[in-house]
Amino acid sequence: MNLTISNLAIGQKAIIKDFDINNIPLKLLEMGCLPGNMVEVIQIAPFGDPLYLNINDSHVAIRLETASIIEVEISKENQL
């Protein structure tokens, strides 16, 4: 299974790889949620949803449902 934003732990950084364009609100793309950009999970709300993210220096909250269709790659910076 592919790794998505919903699999990330708090504080973990990753690079956005791919997503199904038809299920992503355009507003999120405009906030910088695009392949190649960095994403970090800042906080997860009580009960595990929604997620508070830093995407390409934009601070946004999205629901788990949306987060689970955005595929990511763990960034090298974080593995070091």
Partner: peptide
């Protein structure tokens, strides 16, 4: 309707 939910968390 799709469960779109995008909230900017401003400073």
């Amino acid at each position: 309707s799709k469960s779109y939910f995008v909230v900017e968390m401003p400073n």
